[in-house]
């Protein structure tokens, strides 16, 4: 029995060297496999969640994400909705957009962004809309996050 344990130990130690090679030589393959097999994504708290609607304005378009209330289990009371405008080159000096994120045909809030100064104004319509969380120029567009609260 001790001899078998010893042989297994040596085999395991030899396998450690192989694991090192596999880790570096197969990094790309294992990374892709890991992501595909696990099905993980970046949290919507960072990506802004899935885009549910796109509004075409000719030289630019607005991408409206789903409202994000994600919590570890269930939903939080406070969340946000993200809207992106892109591409950067097609943006007008002032962006004005009314957003209907509930899909009831009525605007829930409207934003006005001065893309030269970054000054962003929010007009609340839906009482769930609270304030501007972020208004940031990106490499290829502009993004606004508006804070929401649940009833």
């Amino acid at each position: 029995m001790p001899k078998i344990r010893s042989i297994l130990g040596y085999m395991w130690a030899g396998a450690a060297v192989i694991v090192v090679f596999a880790t570096f030589l197969g990094s790309g393959f294992f990374s892709r496999t890991l992501v595909a097999a696990s099905g993980v994504k970046i949290s919507p708290l960072y990506t802004g969640g899935e885009v549910v609607r796109s509004v075409d304005h000719g030289s630019y378009r607005a991408l409206i994400h789903r409202p994000v209330f994600d919590a570890l289990i269930g939903e939080r009371k406070e969340g946000f909705i993200q809207v992106n405008w892109e591409p950067l080159a097609g943006l007008p000096p002032v962006i004005e957009e009314s957003i209907d994120y509930t899909g009831d045909g009525k605007a829930d809030f409207s934003v006005r962004i001065d893309t030269k100064t970054g000054k962003t104004m929010l007009t609340h319509i839906n009482p769930q809309v609270t304030s501007i969380e972020e208004s940031v120029k990106l490499d290829d567009g502009w993004v606004v996050r508006v804070q929401l609260k649940k009833d």
């Binding site: 880790t23 696990s38 993980v40 949290s43």
Partner: peptide, 30 residues
């Protein structure tokens, strides 16, 4: 939640999340 709570890139780019996980698993085993 099947999500990663970090504003990084899953695959590709500089120091991607998946590549660091592979490195960690390899390092832990070896």
């Amino acid at each position: 939640t099947k999500t990663i709570i970090f504003p990084g890139s899953l695959i590709g780019g500089y120091a991607s999340i998946a590549s660091m996980f592979v490195l960690w698993i390899g390092a832990t085993l070896a």
